[in-house]
Design a protein around this nucleic acid. Structure first.
Length: 234
DNA sequence: GCGACAG
DNA sequence: ATCTTGTCGC
């Protein structure tokens, strides 16, 4: 329930924490791990007026895409929204929701970026390093770095490149024909090709991965429930 | 200095 | 993220 001990309170602390965790990210496929069977989707909903944050973790079978388990967690908002420091606002609740699951996911799909981040530690990578879990990030809107629009067909991609180093830090992916692309980047213990392939598999029907859709719906319902319960109690 | 800026 | 009306389409 509570925020992890020593969770950063100021921007300076958060920046220092990112510098500390950044070198621990493993941006490649992990040979010791078999292909993912249980994939988790995590998402968060807020109510700033009541200082409430609700996270949801939904486990899907990667083959059938059926929901096999789900959990939620409620808490207080631990950090303000600051571009580049989103993880400090979302992860405490996400960690609680994941801990509430009975089974351990083989992969966690996050809402946002991983390596495609100003300091190479977006929330997907951050979550991966903190938990040791394999993670990837799928963002809905551009953040840092330039890119071109992918072609119209589903599966088309274009690189998200760091203009300074020329390094490919992510990829725009057209998950549905002619529909606005999503931005995929490596989180932890996974390579970009695998991350993109997995995202396309999970987004066979809609623009966003099934994992993200389920987690989004669940955390919104849970937030509504938490607010109504609060009204009935207070 | 100014603008941009995941969710 | 969240606030919001109507509207197009399966």
């Amino acid at each position: 329930m509570p925020v992890p001990a020593h969770w950063p309170t100021t921007e300076a602390q958060a920046l220092a924490e990112q510098e500390r965790l950044r070198p621990l990210v493993q941006p490649h496929d992990d040979p010791d791990q078999p292909a993912a069977q249980l994939v988790a989707g995590v998402d968060v909903a807020y109510d700033d007026d009541h200082d409430l944050v609700v996270a949801a973790a939904v486990l899907l079978d990667v083959d059938t895409l059926a929901v096999v388990e789900q959990a939620t967690a409620v808490g207080h908002i631990p950090f303000p929204y600051v571009p580049g420091l989103l993880a400090f606002r979302e992860l405490p609740a996400v960690l609680d929701a994941l801990a509430a699951l009975t089974r351990t996911p083989d992969l966690v799909v996050c809402d946002g970026y991983g390596l495609a981040h100003p300091r190479r530690l977006g929330l997907a990578s951050h979550l991966g390093v903190l938990t040791g879990l394999r993670t990837l990030g799928v963002a809905k809107t551009p953040f840092t770095f330039d890119h071109h629009q992918p072609d119209t067909p589903r599966g088309s991609t274009t690189p998200l490149t760091d203009p300074a180093t020329g390094e490919e830090v992510g990829r725009t992916v057209r998950t549905q024909p002619g529909i606005k692309p999503v931005f995929v980047s490596v989180g932890h213990r996974i390579g970009l090709d695998t991350a993109v392939r997995t995202t396309l598999h999970l987004a066979r029907r809609y623009r966003l991965p099934e994992t993200t859709r389920h987690a989004d719906h669940l955390c919104r319902r849970a937030l509504a429930d938490a607010l109504s319960t609060r009204t009935a109690t207070n």
